[in-house]
Write a protein that binds this DNA or RNA. Structure first.
Length: 465
RNA sequence: GGGGCUGUGGGGUAACUUGGCUAUCCUUGUAGCUUCGGGAGCUAUAGAUUCCGGUUCAAAUCCGGGCAGCCCCA
C-alpha cells in the first residue's frame, strides 16, 4: 500500500495490519485498544506524566459523570459542546431528576471542587492533571485514534492568582510540550486560534498542529488561557494578602490519543509503521536464523543477546516462532520495530550480530563484544533521524501564498489583516480551515490576501484532518 | 435533520437478479513432519449466512421491523 497515493486508505490499512486497534467493537468510534497499541499509548502517557510531575503538577482523577446543572454554568462552554455529549437520563428503571453527561472534557467536573480546594493565595497555584477517557458524539466519519467517540485524553487544569501567573503557566506548558514531543519525534506549529474558533469558554486558545502527508493539518492538542471565564461561574475565589476575595485565573492543556495517530501518519511508510524507539513496545526484535544442526547454538546465542540487552534496560523481543525468517521480517516491519537483530551461524562464526534499521533500511553488523553500546547508539541515531526528517517534512509542507488563484496541496501561509470578515471569506473561498496566527510572532510584511490591507501578520490554513 | 446503500467463518469474498443439492474461493487459526540469511511445502483439522418476525413444501436469497456500518445532501 502506497502512503503517498492514498493516505486515508493507507492509514486505515496500517493500523489494522500492525494490530494497533480493533475496530470491530460494535459502537461507532469506540475501538478496542490492543496490547500493542496500548503499550505505545502508555509510553506516551509516561512522558507526559514525567514532565508534568517534574513541573509540580499533581495527578488527580475526577468522576466520569457530570450533573447537567454544573455543565450549564458557563454559557459558551455548553454552546460549544451540547450537540456532542452523551447523556445518562435513567438509572435502573427510574428517570433521573438531574440528567448526567459523560465528560467531553472535565472543566465542569473539576471546577466545583476547585472552588472548595482553593481558599487562600497559599493554595495557589493549583496545578493538576489527569489522564482519563472522555466522550464526544462525533457526527463526522470516525477514524482510529484521530476521530473517535471515546477518547483517551490528557488534560491539565491550573489555577493562578492573576493573569500574569496564568500566562507564566501557558509558557511553561510550551516548554513541557517540547519535551514531550521530542521522544515522539513529532514537529508542530503553535498557532493562536481565531476568536471564533477558540475553545468554548476560553480567553484564547493555542492549537498544536502537525502535518500529514496529503497536505492536511492534524491538531494534536491545545493550550488555553481562561482568565476568569470559568472561575466566575464556578465561584473559584481566594483570599489575597490584603484579605480581599479574588477570582483565580485558569489554564488548561489537552492532548489525546491522536498522538498515536500522528506517529503513524508522520513516520510510517509503504512497509508499515515506523516507531520512534522511545515509544516502541519493542525497541529491538531478535530473529534467530536457524538451520539443521545449529539450532541449539543459535538459540543459546539469541537468548544471551536478549538477556544482555534487556539487562541494559532495552525493550526487546526474541521472535522464536516456528516460521521462516523472511516472514518475521515482514511482520515486524509492519509493526514498526525500530531495530532488528539477526543471529545465524555466519554471525556466530565471525563474532558479530547483523542489524537492520527500520527507518532507513540500513543493514550492517556490530561486534558481539560491543553490542550494548552500539545498539544504544543506533537507537539514538534512529530517534535523531526521525526527528530531523519530520522537521524537514513539516517545513517543506508549508508554502507562503500571495493569492488564491492556485492553492498548493499544503499548509498555506499568507497575509491576514486579522478581521473576522476576511477570515470567513478566506475559509469560504478556499474551503480550507484557518488555523490561526503563529503564537510566537514571525516577521512578515505583506497584504491581507482578501482585502489587500497592509499587514505584518501571517496566518496559516490547511485542510484539517 | 433528509435521502441512498450494505450486513455470509478471525479478515476479504462467491452464490442473491430468477428461493431448491454438502454455502465458493483466498487468507488466517490449530496439530504434525520436512524446512529456515526476505512472505516455505505437504497432510490433517477448526470456523459463517446480523437479530426478531412473516411468506413458502423449501429462505443467505423475497417481505416487515430492530441493531450495526458505509455514502451523499443540509
Amino acid at each position: 500500500m502506497k502512503k503517498e497515493d492514498n493516505f486515508s486508505e493507507w492509514y486505515n490499512e496500517i493500523v489494522e495490519l500492525a494490530n494497533l486497534t480493533d475496530k470491530r467493537y460494535p459502537i461507532k468510534g469506540m475501538n478496542v485498544w490492543t496490547p500493542y497499541g496500548w503499550k505505545i499509548m502508555l509510553h506516551i502517557d509516561s512522558y507526559i506524566r514525567k514532565e508534568f510531575d517534574a513541573t509540580g503538577h499533581d495527578e488527580v482523577c475526577f468522576p466520569l459523570l457530570i450533573p447537567e446543572t454544573e455543565f450549564q454554568k458557563e454559557k459558551d462552554h455548553i454552546k460549544g459542546f451540547d450537540t456532542e455529549v452523551y447523556w445518562v437520563t435513567q438509572a435502573g428503571a427510574n428517570p433521573l431528576d438531574i440528567r448526567l453527561l459523560l465528560r467531553p472534557t472535565s472543566e465542569t467536573a473539576m471546577y466545583p471542587i476547585f472552588a472548595l480546594w482553593v481558599r487562600s493565595h497559599t493554595d495557589l497555584p493549583l496545578k493538576t492533571y489527569q489522564i482519563v477517557n472522555t466522550f464526544r458524539y462525533e457526527t463526522k466519519m470516525t477514524r482510529a485514534f484521530i476521530r473517535v467517540r471515546e477518547i483517551h485524553f490528557f488534560e491539565s487544569h491550573t489555577c493562578h492568582v492573576d493573569e500574569a501567573d496564568a500566562q507564566r503557566q501557558v509558557e511553561e506548558n510550551f516548554a513541557i510540550l517540547e519535551k514531550v514531543m521530542k521522544p515522539l519525534c513529532l514537529p508542530y506549529l503553535l498557532l493562536k486560534r481565531t476568536d471564533w474558533d477558540k475553545f468554548p469558554g476560553a480567553y484564547y486558545t493555542v492549537g498544536i498542529d502537525t502535518n500529514l502527508p496529503d497536505g492536511r493539518s492534524l491538531q494534536l492538542g491545545s493550550i488555553h488561557h481562561y482568565r476568569e471565564n470559568f472561575s466566575r461561574p464556578f465561584d473559584i475565589k481566594y483570599e489575597d494578602l490584603q484579605g480581599d476575595l479574588k477570582y483565580v485565573h485558569q489554564t488548561t492543556f489537552g492532548m489525546s490519543e491522536r498522538l498515536v495517530g500522528a506517529i503513524v501518519g508522520v513516520h510510517g511508510d509503504d512497509k508499515g509503521l515506523v516507531l520512534p524507539p522511545e515509544v516502541a513496545p519493542y525497541q529491538i526484535v531478535i530473529v534467530p536464523i536457524l538451520a539443521k544442526g545449529i539450532v541449539e547454538e543459535v538459540t543459546l546465542q539469541a537468548r544471551e543477546v536478549k538477556d544482555e540487552l534487556a539487562t541494559a534496560g532495552l525493550r526487546i523481543k526474541l521472535d522464536d516462532r516456528d516460521v521462516r525468517p523472511g516472514s518475521k521480517f515482514y511482520d515486524w516491519e509492519i509493526k514498526g520495530v525500530p531495530l532488528r537483530l539477526e543471529i545465524g551461524s555466519r554471525d556466530i562464526k565471525q563474532g558479530v550480530v547483523t542489524y537492520a534499521r527500520r527507518d532507513s533500511g540500513e543493514k550492517g553488523t556490530v561486534k558481539r563484544t560491543d553490542l550494548v553500546r552500539k545498539v544504544t547508539d543506533i537507537l539514538r541515531s534512529i530517534s535523531d533521524d526521525l526527528n530531523e526528517k519530520a522537521n524537514k517534512n513539516l517545513a517543506d509542507s508549508i508554502e507562503t501564498i500571495e493569492n488564491l488563484d492556485t492553492l498548493p496541496n499544503k499548509i498555506v501561509r499568507f497575509g491576514w489583516c486579522g478581521s473576522e470578515d476576511c477570515g470567513h471569506e478566506f475559509e469560504n473561498r478556499t474551503e480550507l480551515k484557518l488555523l490561526g496566527t503563529p503564537y510566537v510572532k514571525e516577521s512578515f510584511r505583506g497584504d491581507c490576501i482578501i482585502c489587500g490591507a497592509d499587514t505584518d501578520t501571517a496566518a496559516y490554513a490547511a485542510k484539517a484532518m
